[in-house]
Design a protein around this nucleic acid. Structure first.
Length: 902
RNA sequence: GGGCGGGUAGCUCAGUUGGUUAGAGCAACUGGUUUACACCCAGUAGGUCGCAGGUUCGAGUCCUGUCCCGCCCACCA
């Protein structure tokens, strides 16, 4: 039996525990079923649950639960990510409270602290996800620093090194002076900055008193200048070529050179060349055989090469000071405001410093194949437009700097022979387990980019590369996974790299299409939108505009939050969060609950609630039009629902269910059936409710499970129940003669129109709920027959005991519908003036429509070119409106007539 | 500079291959304790579909141009 009132908290805790107890989410390798796999985007161990997680994981859970309903063998693999920089920063902050750095405590102690932090906080987010109801197979839980996962990461490095994709080199990298590590290009975000453009005069050595002016946004790097460059075709500077100028700080003669890379029309056309701190300058310097003078250290302060005056000074302080110095010495021609884009470190939020540095790089393998996987549709992106973004990135792909100067992460599996030249690969040892004589080797100090380990997530969570583990996890059965649900912001960071990893690591050599299909990590990628606040701003901690999901779950139930959020999530578009929608989600749950309470007033479904037993309880002769129409509407809703789900359009799918449930089932069918509770009607209710539970279940798993069991639909979990589609259900019901369904639908729609119109008429007279109002109708014989068939329902819905026929128009408030004219007798004296005014308004509206229609039907081009159905439709409409007009005019005349346009 | 997405009711969004008088929810307003549900029911009002052209018998839907908003990519110092 179902409790009188719905309360989400207890029943959600109860069912989650039961599902776990009964291993409902446990993967099963069933060769006769199709596998359906999802890997969770592993949340950072440092993270706490935010709205993005809720959306993302709700979608995954809906997909996984649907797969189970469709009799697939579902496997949702959960896990967490070690969050390299992010966790390292957290631990460093703890240390900083004791005025220590990680170097004070040493590598081992530091890693211990980090591990402890993770043990303490790392699984909070998973517990939070459980509250949401996610149906992950927790026995498969993975963490990117698990020993087997770590071995997989190192094996990847070793393998790509062996194949020549990984190399070590001195390159320009994005250096973060706060995190003190190199970053990949993807970790740099360009931001518009209000900067200054300094025009600095460099005096010519050979022509004292003559200056060449350079425009720069970074005067603090002047001390690293080794030349001034102009475009070779720039007439202004032809006389300067081959001469020298004085570097204004740390005065030294530097050459004026010509290089094509210089833009004539920017600034003064003269560019200062600082090869150590700018990539363009570096290239120019290389072409001209110039030295590079590094003047900025790794922590962002100037070093001794910048001169004593500036050594040790922060780069931004130095910029100011250099500016002042130049001004004081009359070398600053002008300083103008200037807006430019500056790369910022994604994590630390400070401008990155381009810096020459020795790092490990990956030249991406399988780039062409990765494109082909998308182009040939082996992997499908939703929305499709992201395929363009992906392809563009691959077309312009650059080598990936994979080493990080951090401690927290996978340490690079490269050892250098002690005391030997590190730059000579002869002295390297590269392996997963390290050299056999470790005492003679030093391991590389650096760790791998966290995304390097994420790139093999779908592989390593399924046991790769260990064959025994792969067999145990069912690699061959569950790989490739089906759907990946993630945000488009990590399409390069993660999605593309997983595709490349899968393609490259599951074999060698050229890839046929079939081979690509076998190796891709997933078949579909669903990109969610970003959740924003109601003003369209990104949700962020600093703005404080993000609700705590756990508070929401507490308030509205996990079910309410899930369905509320999905109902406001248009396909692939950003989502403007509104708590009202979440509240609406809970309302739906309550309504569903109450509809069961209503049904249970007539008893439980008992043990006759399998679909077969329900159908047996339906007596075909007892079925009325309303029963058949509601069943037909269910089929239609199911078809639409299936289509929307196939397109991953969850909000549209929910809209369809919602409308069917609320408007068709509750507001119409339940109301109608209140005066008719025979066995057949109850069976129809049971069938409808059963189907609604099945359809809603992936979205609101808790309440549907409770109602399923509470109403006696089965002893199995709802989640193990097979979901039929509309066609299958139709077939089950085929023994029932539905008659002419189309005509029945029209009939019910006509009755509905009548009821709605009369209600509106009553409302206009402020009589909405008075029970003593009498009604008369005037209708032709066909319409009268229909009205007679539904007279009981009409009286019930209109709260009246009197609904009789009349042969002629009455001098009463009137409404005209398809079935005829309805007159309302309130027994009060009628305000004839007011009623005539009401009719005038109605008639003038009608005239407008009629005129529009007539015009259309008089247009010969329309008649000649429009399809028959459209013309027919227009004619029918015109006829209908003409009849309506005639009826209303008759009433108008009966009330005394007079001018129509007052 | 290049690319992508969006602009439809006060708000959030639907609107299938062009075809009846452009829809829903929320908010607003009116009325209602009709025994599932006030987390409810019944009803009302509210739109020049960003703007300007074009194609068509017919355009929210197709084409061209244009203006806003948002995002992504890009070494003009």
């Amino acid at each position: 039996m179902i409790e009188i009132s719905y309360s989400s908290g207890d029943l959600e805790r109860k069912w989650y525990a039961k599902w776990l107890e009964n291993d409902c989410f446990r993967r099963k390798i069933s060769p006769q079923k199709d596998a359906y796999t999802i890997v969770i985007p592993p949340p950072n161990v440092t993270g706490i649950l935010h709205m993005g997680h809720i959306l993302n994981n709700t979608i995954q859970d809906v997909l996984v639960r649907r797969a189970r309903q469709k009799n697939q063998s579902a496997f949702w693999i959960p896990g967490t990510d070690h969050a390299g920089i992010s966790l390292q920063i957290k631990v460093e902050k703890e240390l900083a409270k004791q005025n220590k750095t990680r170097h004070d405590v040493g590598r081992e102690t530091f890693l211990d602290l980090a591990r402890k932090w993770r043990e303490k906080h790392g699984n909070i987010i998973l517990d939070q996800l459980k509250k949401l109801g996610v149906s992950c197979d927790w026995s498969a839980l993975k963490y990117t620093l698990d020993s087997d996962y770590s071995r997989a990461v190192l094996a990847t490095f070793v393998e790509w090194y062996r194949r020549g994709y990984i190399y070590r080199g001195l390159r320009f990298v994005n250096w973060c002076p706060v995190s003190m590590t190199a970053l990949s290009d993807e970790e740099v975000i360009m931001r518009q900055q209000n900067s200054s453009l300094y025009y600095v005069q460099y005096e010519m050595v050979e022509k004292p008193g003559t200056f060449i002016t350079v425009a720069t946004t970074r005067p603090e790097t002047i001390m690293g200048d080794v030349a001034v460059a102009v475009h070779p075709a720039d007439e202004r500077y032809q006389d300067f070529l081959g001469l020298h100028c004085w570097r204004p700080i740390r005065r030294e003669a530097i050459p004026i050179i010509a290089d094509e890379a210089v833009l004539k029309d920017f600034g003064t056309g003269a560019l200062k060349i600082t090869p150590a701190h700018d990539t363009v300058d570096f290239e120019i310097g290389r072409r001209h055989g110039l030295a590079a003078i590094g003047i900025i250290d790794k922590n962002g302060t100037l070093n001794q090469f910048a001169g004593l005056e500036f050594a040790g000074m922060d780069r931004f302080e130095a910029r100011k000071r250099v500016g002042e110095y130049l001004k004081k010495n009359g070398l600053l021609l002008k300083e103008e405001n200037y807006v430019n884009s500056v790369g910022f470190s994604e994590r630390a939020g400070v401008p990155i410093e381009p810096m020459l540095s020795e790092q490990w790089f990956l030249r991406y393998p399988c780039v062409e194949e990765a494109k082909r996987a998308i182009q040939k549709g082996f992997i499908h992106f939703r929305p499709e437009r992201w395929e363009k973004t992906y392809t563009y990135w691959l077309d312009n792909i650059k080598d990936w700097c994979i080493s990080r100067q951090l401690w927290w992460g996978h340490r690079i599996p490269v050892w250098y022979r002690k005391g030997e030249d590190r730059s000579d690969p002869q002295n390297w040892h590269v392996s997963v387990d390290g050299p056999e004589d470790p005492e003679n080797w030093d391991q590389d100090e650096d760790v791998l980019d966290t995304w390097f380990s994420s790139a093999i997530w779908p592989l390593a969570t399924l046991g790769w590369p260990d064959e025994k583990a792969m067999a145990e996890m069912g690699f061959d059965y569950f790989y490739p996974t089906a759907d990946l649900v993630t945000g488009p912001d990590i399409i390069f960071f993660w999605v593309a790299r997983m595709i490349i990893s899968g393609l490259s690591l599951l074999g060698e050599g050229a890839l046929s299409d079939d081979e690509i299909r076998r190796r891709i990590p997933f078949k579909n990628v669903y990109f969610t939108g970003i959740i924003r606040d109601h003003l369209g701003r990104k949700m962020s901690k600093s703005l404080g505009n993000s609700p705590d999901p756990l508070d929401l779950i507490e308030k509205y139930g996990a079910d309410g939050v899930r369905i509320g959020l999905l109902s406001m999530a248009p396909h692939g578009q950003d989502i403007l969060f509104s708590e009202e929608r979440v509240a609406q989600g809970k309302k739906l749950c309550t309504k569903l609950w109450n509809s069961f309470c209503f049904r249970q007033r007539s008893g439980m479904a008992g043990d006759r609630s399998s679909i077969g037993a329900i159908i047996e309880r339906i007596d075909g002769d007892a079925l009325e039009a309303n029963d058949i129409v509601i069943l037909e509407k269910l089929f239609v809703a199911m078809d639409g629902f299936e289509r929307a789900m196939a397109d991953y359009e969850f909000n549209r799918a929910l809209q369809i269910l919602y409308t069917f449930f609320w408007n068709d089932y509750c507001d119409w069918y339940i109301e109608i059936s209140k005066i008719r509770t025979n066995g057949t009607v109850l069976a129809v209710h049971d069938l409808l409710l059963r189907q609604l539970l099945l359809l809603f279940h992936p979205f609101i798993p808790f309440i549907t499970e409770e109602l399923w069991q509470g109403h006696g639909y089965g002893t199995k979990f709802l989640s193990e129940e097979f979901l039929e589609n509309g066609d299958e259900l139709r077939r089950d019901l085929s023994k029932i003669n539905f008659g002419n369904v189309g005509a029945l639908i029209e009939e019910i729609e006509a009755i509905r129109e009548l009821v709605v119109a009369v209600r509106a008429l009553r409302a206009q007279f402020g009589l909405a709920s008075r029970r003593d109002v009498k009604f008369y109708f005037k209708a032709d014989s066909a319409a009268k027959a229909i009205i007679d068939r539904h007279l009981r329902d009409i009286k019930h819905l209109l709260l009246t005991g009197f609904f009789d026929e009349t042969a002629e128009a009455l001098q009463l408030p009137t409404i005209v519908v398809a079935l005829g004219s309805i007159y309302m007798d309130t027994a009060d004296s009628l305000d004839i003036g007011a009623e005539k005014e009401r009719l005038r308004r109605e008639l003038s509206e009608l005239d407008r429509f009629i005129e529009m229609n007539q015009k259309k039907l008089q247009n010969e081009d329309f008649l000649r070119r429009a399809p028959k159905e459209v013309i027919e439709g227009a004619r029918d409409l015109l006829a209908e409106n003409m009849t309506k007009k005639k009826e209303l005019e008759a009433v108008f005349e009966a009330l005394g007539g007079g001018p129509r346009n007052s």
